[in-house]
Nucleic acid binder design. Structure first.
Length: 504
RNA sequence: GGCGCUAUCGUCUAGGGGACCAGGAUGGGUGGUUCUCAGCCAUCAGACCGGGGUUCGAAUCCCCGUAGCGCCA
């Protein structure tokens, strides 16, 4: 067993079972929050809530060139929208603030110097170009790792390198031996130190590398469990080495499987729609997103599909997280959103629909109660059809404007029939005389009309549907006519008759 | 190139030695309900990566391959 025994050190933490669970999500503000990140955040959040612990948000923005204030905002917004509230972090503060790495540089520096003084790290003057060249010269069989060139420089050598104007980076001196990671999902994973190679902890510009900053922050912030994506597993032995060197306790790890794109490569921009804000904009409900993401890599023994918030928190455990990567399936996400929309309270649905109707200019900025009533009726009719909120514009736009475009296919199939003009003409007259104008009466009228014209009911219904909506599909004909009202129905029949005259 | 992880229907998954001729969900097919679509109901097709072991018995345990993915820059 090594002098720095992960087992030995890990035990302290396990034994003290009463310690409050503290987990963190540590995004880099170098892009929008994508579904993979959201899922990692979610698992951390669920774990924290399940154990009545703390969920901490930390911003890893040491890559100044790629980080932006804008993305920082988007990431925070997306988390809030999903309902993943954090107990400590930006905007919230906490005992271990600041929670933004760029404001913690002095801390990393302090620990870096400690390691330097103790001889556990050393200055490296190699330039990126030299390292690149070295790598290229490596034998095929050799692992890619640092040569150790600057490991044992004399002070004279250092002076002369510095005289050349070289800015040193700080490298960690990897001791001989073996490290292992006791992963909650995968068991013990061992790594040989000699294959790791001395790695950089402080770049020549003084900023810390991911592994270093991460170790310092997680330790100082008293994190108990690191739940993060699988892609970090190969980084973990480096971090374990650092915990040892810094005399920090080794935390518990759980590397959760990645989310992949359709082509089963790691989800990225080129897979198209992957950001949380995209799905938000399209009209996915936040809870759909949470529910769906929870099912990517986690499941219950009965493969339950739908969960309420408290139920999910109560049922979520790391033990039931799978080990293999999962492909993100937009189809199932859409289905689930449709399910949640169908279960939604009608008034709530109306509220969610309004911004989309407004953006499409189908309703006025200021809304009177009659309009709201109408939206409510429309929502009732479309609720079972709509899967994503933004679809309301396409599905139900015709309710709000008489000036919709006619879909050419149904026009061809249903309107361009010889019997249609005289049928519509007669229909218009009879509807005009119809009182009251109610669904039941309208249906009777149309069925009688069919008999009088020796047509099947469908041969009457279909042309009217196209005349009223411009399309072949949609809610029930009588229901939608009821929402439109007598005047509008007559107007649209006339418009169709007019169109007929012109095209024939 | 080295190291690591993973491997059940197209996809998400249940399964942790016999209860599995492998269950659920999604997606797809078919039929029914209906003015269309959606929904709902019914129904069909669809998987244990390959090979060796261990065992009376393996999707389940071990080994070796293979493949996918990830990390190291």
């Amino acid at each position: 067993m090594d002098q720095c025994s992960p087992k030995e050190r890990g035990v302290k933490l396990v034994a003290s079972g009463r310690v409050e669970v503290r987990v963190r999500f540590a995004p880099s503000p170098t892009g929008e929050l994508h579904v993979g990140g959201a899922r990692t955040a979610l698992f951390n959040w669920l774990f924290a809530r399940h154990h009545r612990g703390k969920f901490i948000l930390r911003i890893e923005d040491t890559d100044v060139a790629r980080s932006s204030e804008n993305f920082y905002r988007v990431v925070l917004d997306s988390l809030k929208w999903l309902g993943l509230d954090w107990d400590e972090g930006p905007e919230k503060g906490g005992r271990y603030s600041p929670y933004i790495q760029s404001q913690r540089l002095h801390i990393y520096e302090k620990y870096a110097h400690k390691l330097l003084e103790e001889g556990k790290a050393y200055l490296c003057y190699c330039t990126p170009q030299e390292l690149e060249d070295y790598k290229r010269r490596l034998e095929k069989e050799e692992p890619l790792r640092y040569s150790g060139k600057c490991r044992n420089l004399s002070s004279e050598e250092r002076k002369s390198l510095e005289a050349e104007g070289r800015k040193p980076a700080l490298r960690f001196r990897v001791p001989p031996g073996t490290v292992w990671v006791d992963d909650l999902l995968r068991g013990r994973v061992s790594f040989e130190n000699r294959l790791i190679g001395d790695f950089i902890i402080l770049k020549s510009d003084g900023t810390p590398t991911y592994n270093f900053a991460c170790v310092i922050d997680d330790s100082l912030m008293k994190i108990t469990h690191i739940i993060r994506g699988d892609e970090h597993l190969p980084n973990t032995p480096r971090q374990v080495l650092l915990y040892c060197a810094l005399d920090f306790p080794i935390l518990r790890f759980a590397h959760i499987p990645l989310i992949l794109g359709r082509d089963s490569s790691k989800l990225s921009k080129r897979h198209g729609a992957t950001s949380v804000s995209y799905y938000r904009g399209q009209g996915y409900l936040p809870w759909t997103m949470v529910n769906y993401l929870a099912l990517l890599g986690w499941s219950t023994s009965d493969s339950q599909q739908f969960f309420g918030r408290d139920e999910l928190i109560q049922k979520f455990t790391l033990e039931r997280v799978g080990k293999s990567a999962a492909i993100f399936d937009p189809m199932k996400l859409e289905w689930m959103n449709g399910e949640y929309i169908r279960r939604m309270d009608l008034d709530e649905l109306v509220n969610l629909l309004i911004p989309y109707l407004r953006r499409a200019d189908l309703i006025e900025e200021k809304m009177d109660s009659a309009t709201r009533q109408k939206i409510l009726k429309v929502a009732r009719l479309e609720q079972e059809r709509i899967k994503v909120l933004s679809q309301i514009v396409d599905l139900a736009g015709f309710f709000f404007t008489g000036d919709f475009a006619y879909d050419p296919i149904p026009v061809e199939k249903r309107l361009k029939k010889d019997y249609v003009p005289s049928l519509l003409e007669e229909m218009r007259m009879r509807i005009e005389a119809l009182s009251p104008f109610e669904e039941k009466e309208l249906e009777e009228l149309l069925r009688r009309l069919a008999r009088d014209f020796s047509l099947s009911p469908s041969e009457v219904f279909h042309p009217l549907r196209v005349a009223l909506t411009g399309r072949m599909k949609g809610p029930g004909l009588f229901e939608l006519a009821g929402v439109l009202g007598k005047g509008e129905v007559i107007r649209r029949i006339e418009r169709t008759l007019e169109m007929h005259k012109n095209s024939l």
